[in-house]
Write a protein that binds this DNA or RNA. Structure first.
Lengths: 215, 215
DNA sequence: ACCGTACTGGACCGTCGGTCCAGTTGTCCA
DNA sequence: TGGACAACTGGACCGACGGTCCAGTACGGT
């Protein structure tokens, strides 16, 4: 981050102001209709400053998201069980999903703002590999917990499925109406059922569309 | 559709050309970077025509999606089991999910193009109620099948969760690489586990985690 | 054949993401 | 303390895009 120099005081102040302004706008307006100019104006800085600090719209959203997710990140890596290390994987997983729903519920618009772009670099093939760090972390964590508990499952894919929930508009809508608990409950049900399922129980690869690629 | 007059021949021709051009562009380029002008040019019509027929970007995507989903719609409502009526709900559900994955896999970019907007009217509070008809239908169908099999579950929410899968960028990426079978398998596993789970097994509404990180 | 109208298409508009660069200001070092 | 230098600032500017408008076109009914 800070290579060599420290961050200049005014820069830090403006950076904070921009993030704050974005937060407020996000809380009040639909995320896809807040413009960078609006953000700049609301923060009381020039547009150039915003772009200088955050590169582009996505960068701004990423930074904001990263900040919001920080507490959770710490709770998971160094906090007490069941979120932190120490509890059995199953408990950690359930606790983590609860916590993630919580974060998302408190940041309704933000996830939507990131949108699909969360994991995508959209410019002329930048590096299609790198996902949003927050997503990356969440996904890795869930993957690891699932596979610890059930090594026979496709943990990685299932983690994507679970997280996909949080990008869904109808579900975001529910969250807006305060139905976070309902979502958390269903997620618990789902995961519990998954972890309890007997291993060979699901019918294996049936022959799909003939020209569907294998793997 | 055709109230009173028939659709003019040239209009039909152009409409088809536009849809076709959109398809091709969608297949070649990232969906968020194809512009309406491009579509118009590729279809060999003026921009006005495109807007006249489809209203706006979303309308175009909707129309295309509706067309793509038509076959599935018919298979479900009037086709033979297990997709159509007649088979037990569980079989129908599994078959339907397979089929949906198939449709999505064959239309990679399209879902992403619709994006979150699938269910949202974005203009100044138009009618936040109405979802994309295709989504609506898929959701209703899944909800109904789940609740027939397991009336104790929150079928509606679970249906949203299952469908959310298809809007996820990482998963769309997998689909692009031909991993449709892998996704279908995991979905089957998930649903089977869910339907098999013993009723009271999942811990009921615990009072969210006390040490969930704040803010 | 001819009339009314639905359809057409390109000029046009306002907005927005992003760039640029000249001026400013914080920080380091002597 | 002061000077030099780079980092930061911010607003003018640009190209692109979604969407509107409307004069002209040509389809289809009669």
């Amino acid at each position: 981050m800070t290579e060599g120099r420290r961050e200049r005081a005014d820069a830090a102040r403006n950076r904070h102001a921009i993030l704050l302004a974005t937060e407020e706008l996000l809380a009040r307006h639909r995320p896809e209709q807040i413009s960078m100019e609006q953000v700049a104006a609301a923060a009381g800085v020039g547009k150039g400053t915003v772009f200088h600090r955050f590169g582009n719209r996505m960068g701004l959203m990423r930074a904001l998201m990263a900040e919001r997710a920080l507490a959770l990140h710490e709770a998971v890596t160094t906090g007490p069980p069941p979120l932190g290390p120490g509890a059995p994987s199953r408990e950690r997983l359930l606790a983590f999903l609860d916590a993630v729903v919580d974060v998302v519920a408190r940041n309704k618009g933000l996830l939507a703002a990131l949108g699909h772009a969360v994991t995508t670099a959209h410019k002329p093939e930048e590096d299609p590999r790198s996902a949003h760090p927050v997503y990356q972390f969440w996904h890795d964590h869930i993957t690891s917990l699932i596979s610890q508990e059930r090594s026979d499952l496709d943990a990685e894919l299932l983690a994507h499925i679970l997280l996909a929930t949080l990008h869904s508009d109808p579900i975001l809508r529910l969250l807006e109406q305060g139905d976070g608990q309902r979502l958390a409950d269903s997620l618990r049900t789902l995961v519990t059922a998954l972890l309890n399922a007997s291993a060979g129980r699901t019918e294996p690869r049936n022959s799909r569309h003939p020209n569907a690629p294998q793997r």
